[in-house]
Write a protein that binds this DNA or RNA. Structure first.
Length: 939
DNA sequence: GTACTCACG
DNA sequence: GACGTACGTGAGTACG
């Protein structure tokens, strides 16, 4: 049945996961020089792989090679026995970021890289070994895992890759006391403390082998247990019969995994010099790079040249040698045969750039129209799926266009590729396409995202959209989509385009994405931001995609009733305002309002802005109201209602999805320079809370029947981070003691004992605390507290005198920014500050942003780390809670009524520990939790 | 398309 | 010494 392998072939199956762990534990903790990324395991792994590849030319060379990895997550064994491998310590933090790199290394060496969800590497190895053996091929398993010894014999042999010793039937017998065919029987009796296989208590390998040699196998032994002479041993076997049977199922390898990779993909081929040397150079493995370059007869690339990092002024790096972009060269895939040719090419390459074309921008509504693929720079294809023909009259009678594949057939062919753990999918803004594919039943993984690579390297320097990146790094302006679908009212959807017109535009995006990826991959390392990208940007993509697809239930009637109430109140206010003004005008027009106030009513002190219009912001109107003017006071009320109505009670209703009845926001991972997320369409991160009237809008965000909303938020996270970064002992101590931090600050700065603290003094200290986070200035503080500027300055001076560490932090940060053109968060996120050395007020802005960025950014990093870990934590506890929203320091879940408390405990633990082990904070992180039937009640 | 205003952390 | 400012966002409205 197995194709692509047979007599005369020799298959090497390499236990990749085994290699990684042995390399990790055997080698000292090596880190990459330029940025400290741990690479010890990768280095050991590469050396071992290289040794294997070198042997591929030897006398006993394999014709086929595959490197097999464990897939993270549950396997079928956990269904049999939940405790399986439950005593394993979590993956060491130093090892985690190295995992994807080992896959990359495998592909770079030109080897098939295989893993599959739900199965361990051992099962895949067993399946491939048996298939190849039955087809008549010779099989060598390179591993030292004793669990694989059951496969030895009949044309399958094992080699311990590290010690370079052969493991044949004799060696197996020496270890287990039985031949390979009885290994599972011995293992199921003896158990395995490493994998937490229970076995029979008190029976080890020696006794097990004795029993099996006497009775033949486990089943016979259990049937005839009464015959055992030793009473204790007999009783143990009788008492634990079921446990032994379970153990047998655990240790028996699955030889019938529905594998997704054929033997064709494992054929030995010469590694591509660019791929392998490029990877090794990025890793900064000088010795190995030089050795392999010599072997391949090419010049070694320069290793670890930080000069390759982009300069702080954001100048575009030089374009690499690539063929020019030529949309006329792209192919249109219209039938199965053509698509299969592409799929073969993808499997051979191990990666593919993917882009989708859809009917709109809202990925919860838009339909998939076509798919673009590219594996080679300059070559790309468009697979049209749902184009329609004809203008599509008013009745929508447009018909399916000719010359495209049946969508179901095409997607069925692509699904195994898109879900193959051994094939990297490269996308620009992967979250969008992931959500589109999710609605087609396809889980896109693993992925790489050029938008996020750019964000990790160049956050603060420029935007990260495809057009901007293409123009900047490829010197190429992509075909504007508007040139095809038009704008405004006459705009059409993508499916209405003729396939021939759509294809060049569509395929170009995949080509561009692939080019960007080739350019960014080495630079990501040079910019020292690989860890940030791999731990805080890329893993967030599937998490956010799921949250966005979850959405939150919104009570339309509640909003509608509020809208009506607001409309009535506004009408009343409007009449009053016109009465006071002496004429009717548009209250919503700041320009008209300014003229009424300062020209017609003659109020003094009107200030004009740069456009010549009077400023009428809330602060100005408040001042006028305080002077006793009624009209501005009414306008303030009117504006509040107008804002609530238009932005929330009205607009939110339009965002309720017809199919789900829920509101699905979209998070922009690269939206904020500091690492914060941004929320759009609608923005659910600015739902009112500060006023009573506004807060009622939160009552419209509800839980489904039988569920509650659970909200958890970090308490004072930015001040805690400030205390840590600036090293302020008094603040740290206050957080350790659980004190009221603003009262404590007030007490220190204003010399007031805590028990004599007044709300007024505390308010001032609170304003200073926040001011510090924002890059304090006397002007800003004076504005905020409505006090004279010299008074504000006196406060700040007193504060700095009491906490000199804060002043020091601010000066150090400014100096660092001026020297490097960027600042960093505690977790290594780089935030560029290109204007820090500018002249004039721009530098002042940049200075305050530079003070704020490490604080806001570290807090953002922490919640990102928590969000990445939460789905696993919930899954491990079999908890069904759904994460719905993130509001910078708050996470909102929907959870079954009885499960709220358990969920809160799990999530709180993850959130409070989220900095660990990368950063050991000097202050505790504290998370507050609340539940309720709606968001107002839960918050 | 830009400016202004205001909602959130 | 003057500049003209609190940090980070998104969205709705008016207006040219």
């Amino acid at each position: 049945m197995a194709t692509g392998i047979g007599k005369g072939h020799h298959l090497h199956l390499i236990d990749g996961s085994g290699f990684i762990f042995r390399a990790f534990h055997a080698l000292p903790p090596l880190t990459r020089k330029s940025d400290g990324l741990p690479v010890g395991a990768v280095s050991g792994f590469c050396n071992m792989i290289y040794k294997m590849v070198e042997a591929n030319n030897g006398p006993d060379a394999p014709t086929h090679v595959a490197v097999i990895f464990d897939h993270s997550g549950k396997t079928f064994r956990n269904d049999i026995y939940p405790e399986y491998k439950a005593n394993r310590p979590p993956l060491p933090e130093d090892l985690r970021p190295q995992m994807p790199l080992t896959r990359e290394a495998t592909r770079a060496f030109g080897l098939a890289c295989i893993e599959q969800e739900g199965f361990e590497a051992d099962d895949l190895i067993a399946t491939f070994a048996v298939q190849a053996r039955d087809a008549g091929a010779r099989v060598t398993i390179i591993s030292s895992d004793k669990d694989l010894m059951q496969l030895v014999g009949g044309g399958v042999e094992m080699v311990d890759g590290m010690k370079n010793v052969r493991i044949g039937p004799e060696e197996v017998e020496a270890k287990f006391g039985v031949g390979p065919d009885r290994v599972v029987d011995v293992q199921s009796l003896a158990g395995d403390s490493v994998d937490n296989v229970p076995g029979a208590p008190g029976i080890g390998i020696k006794t097990a082998a004795l029993l099996i040699n006497e009775f033949g196998d486990v089943e016979t032994l259990l049937e005839r247990a009464e015959e055992i002479k030793q009473p204790k041993r007999r009783q143990t076997l009788i008492d634990n019969a079921e446990q032994i049977r379970i153990s047998k199922r655990l240790v028996t390898l699955d030889q019938n995994v529905p594998v997704e990779v054929g033997f064709e993909a494992m054929e030995v081929r010469e590694p591509n010099a660019d791929d392998v040397l490029g990877f090794l150079a990025q890793m900064e493995f000088r010795t190995l790079t030089n050795r392999i370059a010599e072997k391949l007869g090419v010049e070694a690339p320069t290793v670890a040249a930080p000069a390759g990092a982009p300069s702080a002024d954001g100048a575009a790096p030089a374009k690499r040698d690539m063929p020019p972009i030529d949309p006329s060269k792209y192919e249109i895939v219209r039938d199965k045969a053509a698509l299969e040719t592409w799929i073969t090419a993808i499997r051979e390459r191990g990666y593919v750039a993917v882009d989708t074309e859809t009917t709109g921008l809202d990925e919860m509504i838009a339909d998939l129209v076509g798919i673009c693929l590219s594996v080679e720079v300059g070559q790309a294809c468009y697979v049209p799926l749902r184009h329609v023909e004809g203008e599509g009259d008013l009745l929508g009678s447009s018909e399916r266009a000719a010359g495209q594949m049946d969508p179901a057939e095409a997607l069925a062919l692509l699904k195994p590729v898109f879900e193959d753990a051994a094939i990297l999918k490269i996308l620009q803004n992967a979250k969008y396409d992931m959500k589109i594919f999710a609605r087609e039943g396809i889980t896109l993984a693993p992925i790489e995202d050029t938008m996020l690579m750019s964000y990790a390297m160049h956050g603060g320097l420029h935007g990260h959209g495809m057009d901007a990146l293409s123009e900047r790094y490829l010197d190429h302006k992509p075909i504007p989509i508007k040139s095809l679908i038009g704008t405004g009212k006459s705009q059409i959807t993508f499916d209405k385009l003729k396939i021939e017109d759509a294809a060049p535009y569509a395929a170009e995006d995949a080509d561009i994405t692939l080019r960007l990826w080739h350019l960014f991959k080495p630079r990501l390392h040079a910019a020292k931001t690989t860890t940030v990208y791999e731990t805080m940007e890329r893993p967030l993509v599937p998490v956010l995609a799921q949250m966005e697809r979850n959405g939150i239930l919104v009570d339309r009637d509640h909003l509608s009733r509020m809208s009506n109430t607001f409309a009535q109140k506004m009408a009343g206010l409007e009449a009053e305002i016109h009465e006071l003004a002496g004429r009717s005008f548009n209250v919503g027009s700041p320009k008209q309002l300014g003229e009424i106030l300062f020209d017609e009513m003659g109020i003094q002190g009107g200030k004009k802005g740069k456009t010549g219009a009077y400023a009428t912001g809330a602060d100005i109107l408040e001042e006028l109201a305080a002077q006793g003017h009624d009209l501005p006071a009414r306008v303030l009320d009117w504006r509040q209602l107008s804002k609530l109505k238009s932005t929330y009670t009205d607009a939110l209703q339009d965002h309720i999805n017809k199919d789900t009845g829920r509101v699905h926001t979209s998070y922009v991972i690269s939206g904020a320079n500091t690492g914060r997320l941004a929320s759009t369409d609608p923005n659910l991160q600015n739902i009112p809370v500060r006023t009573e009237e506004g807060r009622r809008i939160r009552e419209a965000f509800v839980a489904e029947e039988g569920n509650v909303l659970l909200s958890l938020d970090y308490s004072q996270i930015e001040l805690r981070i400030l205390a840590h970064i600036a090293g302020i002992d008094a603040l740290k101590q206050a957080f350790h003691d659980g004190l009221d931090i603003h009262a404590m600050t007030a007490s220190q700065v204003f010399d007031v004992p805590l028990d004599e603290m007044t709300p007024e003094v505390r308010r001032k200290a609170k304003a200073i605390n926040f001011g510090v986070i924002y890059g304090i200035s006397a002007f800003g503080l004076a504005n905020n507290l409505r006090i004279p500027r010299d008074e504000a300055k006196a406060f700040i001076d007193a504060y700095f005198e009491r906490f000199p560490g804060i002043k020091q932090y601010m000066e150090d940060t400014k100096k660092f920014a001026q020297e490097h053109g960027h600042v960093k968060t505690l977790f290594g996120r780089v935030i560029h500050t290109p204007e820090i050395n500018a002249k004039g007020p721009r530098a002042s802005f940049a200075y305050r942003a530079a003070i704020n960025a490490p604080i806001q950014g570290s807090a953002a990093d922490i919640i990102r780390r928590a969000m990445v870990r939460i789905p696993d934590a919930l899954r491990a506890a079999d908890n069904s809670a759904r994460m719905l929203l993130q509001v910078h320091d708050e996470l909102i879940f929907e959870v079954r009524e009885g499960e709220a408390e358990a969920t809160a405990a799990i999530v709180r633990e993850v959130m409070e520990q989220a900095a660990n082990p990368a950063v050991k904070l000097d202050v505790p992180l504290v998370v507050d939790a609340g539940t309720g039937l709606n968001w107002a009640a839960a918050h």
